[in-house]
Design a protein around this nucleic acid. Sequence first.
DNA 1: TTGGCCTGAGCGTCGTTTAT
DNA 2: ATAAACGACGCTCAGGCCAA
Length: 683
Amino acid sequence: MQVSDFWPQNDDRAIHLKEAHALVNTLRSVPDRVRNHRVDAYVDNLACVFAWENQKGKDPQLNNIMKELYNFTVDFNMDLKLIYIPSKSNPADSVSRNISAQDCMLSREKFCLVDSTFGPHTSMGSYLAIPRVNGTCLSCGGYNYQNYRFCQVCGEKRWLPNEESVDHFSLDEYNDQKRILHLESMISSTAYNKKKASLKKELDTFLESRSKTMISATPEDVRLFLMFKDKKGKTQVHELNCPFLGKSKKQNCFCPTRLASGTVSSLMGQLKSLFDDCGKQGEWTEFSLLKQGNPVSSTVISRYLRAIQMEQSFAHVPIKQAKPVKPSGGSLSLPWSEGLRVSVTPRAMPAGASSPGRVTHAGQWILGADFEDQLHYIWSSFSALALDPGSPRKHSIALVGTPRWVDGKNGESFSFHMAQQNKPSKSALIHKKRKCDDSEPCREDDSWPRFIVIKGTEEKPISKISPFVIHKQIQSVAGTVKKVSKMRSGNLLVECSNKSQSTNLLTMSTISNFPVSASPHNSLNSCKGIIRDRSQYLGDLTVEEIGEELSSQGVTNVIRFQIKKNGNIIKLNTYLLTFRTPTPPPSITLGCFGIRVDMFIPNPIRCFTCQKFGHGSKQCRGKQRCFKCSDEGHEGTNCHSESSKCVNCGESHFSSSRDCPVYLKEKNIIKIKTERNIQLPRS
DNA sequence: TTGGCCTGAGCGTCGTTTAT
DNA sequence: ATAAACGACGCTCAGGCCAA
């Protein structure tokens, strides 16, 4: 029901008086609806709201209207509550800004001018300010201006004595209507519109079953409709442990069939268009008092689509129709992220071009700091193949992930783009895909972050959120995880059992409407290992070259140990490798030679200022002590004492001694920490 | 043959960067 | 400061494919 009225043009009262008066008039116009009721009225004027709430105001005129309003509520036994709504969110406001019928009227002077210039004319009826006179319609008996060709009351064509007069305003309504219908039918006869009409019918039926219409539908209704459609899909989405993972066509397994993510996206487009057509346009305003806009524009729906896309990318759903990829001159202009899934079929590797350590397998997950190198390699090898005229062109590259990067040093999230003008895309799907050759199953690798840190915000740290809510949220996002513990910083440390849990947790952005961020743990997801190249397979290769060769075996960084002897730097045959897995592999291959990998147990850090273990001099808050005599106030280089005393154990040896019992104890703690991959306090 | 699923091409819009 | 160029993205639509 819509009630509307207009103020006289000469009403120059202040807007708050008009608003208050309008409220009184509105209530008066619907007495039966408000009598004996509690009424919430949305008003876009704060002065009115405050005057009513406080039962007084500064403006006597406003107070008079409020008294009138009060009397009305008493007479009608009504409990009235005024709620403020900003003008831009107030649907009634937009109506009041529309052109009214009165606005469309010609003034008497303008009408006479038009009439004298163009002669007698038709239609417009009540939209003209001139009275209808001189002439009665034979059909309805209504009064008309004598030369009108059509009755101003019923629209019937009238016989006129002067048919020859020129009528510029007359329309060939019949033929125009016919043409409009023809044009309309052309539009509605297209396949797309037929589909849309069919979809609308289906949506109407669905909404009817929920006692809703398109006008009252919410994003939740739309999501339920999409889920209803989802059940009719024919794309089989395999579980991660299904042997048919990555296979196309229907397989003989119990994995569910769903709508392809592209179809869901297409459906969303059609639904959005349908809601637009019925007047529900613009962004969905979930948090305003009056929910309005297009429900398909809601974040509920876009998150649903993202989830579907993610689910199907994890399930390696192959793309049915494929198009060739055109490499853009070798320049890498892809947004990158942590946790991208790279899907490259083995045939994408040009024969002979891939060195043994660099083959990227289908379904491989690229994580962490070596991402850039790997992506460069994939892209260059792929480009090389695509540019090769003899290429069988049956390979694919697909990168799917979330554009987010976590700084390994500071643990901060920031967006990143390389060789890219614009910001990285929000879309998870980064590059077009080509037809997957499913002759070879996709291989899972285990380089996914097992330990995820979930941080709250300063306003709402994790500790302020109910543990039950946290538990439920983690359950809903990732299922039953291996372990959840609280870190000393107050953040949550979640240990995942499988890759999908890890990936799902990394997408978590809220817990109970409070923003949180999830990122891989900085140290627990990687480890270090030692290789001793006694046979000198590696010769004089640089660490960069070695790192590149070993990257496919999970190596993200290589450091070669060296010592200083007589002022000369001597390179040792011991290498420190960083792996992107929580534990190092027992061995790796250097080309065709296997070599054992030992756990790297770092030496305890001793502070050069206070000589205590566990921190460096940069973080030291203690006083300067001598490593020789343990006295305060001077360094060991300036020590003239003949006796020695350890700062840590008090025995007569230098604080730097490797035989110090405190040093040995520290070393043992670090060994336990490293071997069990646990945090220092627990070890 | 028909209807529905599925995907990619094309187009328009918007935001950002670069050139003038 | 402004225009042009560029890329990302959303939406529309057509056509291939497949099952009933």
